[in-house]
Design a binder for these strands. Structure first.
Length: 237
DNA sequence: GCGACAG
DNA sequence: ATCTTGTCGC
């Protein structure tokens, strides 16, 4: 399927990114989103397995609608700027299991705030043909001042003289996220939706849920014994 | 050459 | 990010 002609070398991966960059479309959503999902993947270095998870929520109510997960083998090593070649296949596999197709997908990584404009969120959006938003916990590139302390405060993320995203504070006094549109969405819409997905945690709810599911998948797969481990000693109760 | 570097 | 145990705080 997808991993057959998947890039095997650094050069092939970079060439694919450069051939895809012209297909990225930062256009407004066709309609207000009713279902927003979060996507995250996590790897187990020991056996090179990787687990992907997607959690779909109603929007703006933010009630969990559906979750899906997938497991596989890492198809590419981690390299700065090439994260998508590691995570797109497993996230696409999880996405295909969904019964409810989300209107927007929040992704744990950069959107267009990337050396060739093709961060994980952008690449995944192109492959799935779904609007995506990149929500990264740290910076890959670009400059911008520290946003104000209040929740919702944001500063443009500038790279090569252009605004490629926002440094966005989701919770008062907490570390901000690096937001950038992925595909089929605008920066303003991305900001609005991400803030609309924040409740009592720093991470947007759909992303937090997907992160939790991917971690549970990894534990369940790496600790077969753990599933039915011995009960706690009496003296612990 | 030096510093930076999503997950 | 991963590898790890307990531990401090709401």
């Amino acid at each position: 399927m997808l991993s057959q002609d998947w890039p095997q070398t650094y050069q092939e991966a970079v060439a694919l990114q450069e051939s895809l960059r012209g297909q990225v479309r930062l256009i407004p959503l066709s309609r207000p989103p009713r279902f927003v999902a979060g996507a995250d993947a996590i790897a187990a270095r020991a056996d090179r397995r990787i687990f992907g998870a997607i959690a779909v929520y109603s929007y703006p109510e933010l009630e969990l609608v559906e979750e899906a997960g997938a497991a596989g083998v890492c198809p590419f090593p981690y390299r700065t700027g090439l994260l998508s070649f590691r995570e797109v296949p497993i996230l696409a596999a999880a996405f295909e299991k969904l019964k409810q197709r989300p209107d927007v997908l929040l992704v744990d990584g950069q959107g267009i705030a990337h050396p060739r404009g093709l961060g994980l969120a952008t690449h995944l959006g192109l492959v799935l043909e779904v609007p995506t938003i990149g929500v990264a916990k740290s910076r890959l590139l670009g400059n911008g001042e520290e946003p104000g302390r209040d929740a919702g405060a944001a500063i443009p993320l500038i790279w090569q003289g252009k605004v490629v995203g926002l440094i966005l504070r989701t919770q008062t006094g907490k570390k901000p996220f690096y937001l950038s549109p992925g595909h089929l969405i605008t920066l303003a819409e991305s900001r609005e939706i991400v803030m609309g997905c924040v409740r009592r945690y720093r991470s947007p709810i759909p992303l937090r849920q997907a992160d939790g599911l991917s971690r549970r998948l990894r534990s369940a797969a790496s600790d077969p014994e753990e599933t039915r481990r011995a009960p706690a000693p009496d003296k612990w109760r």
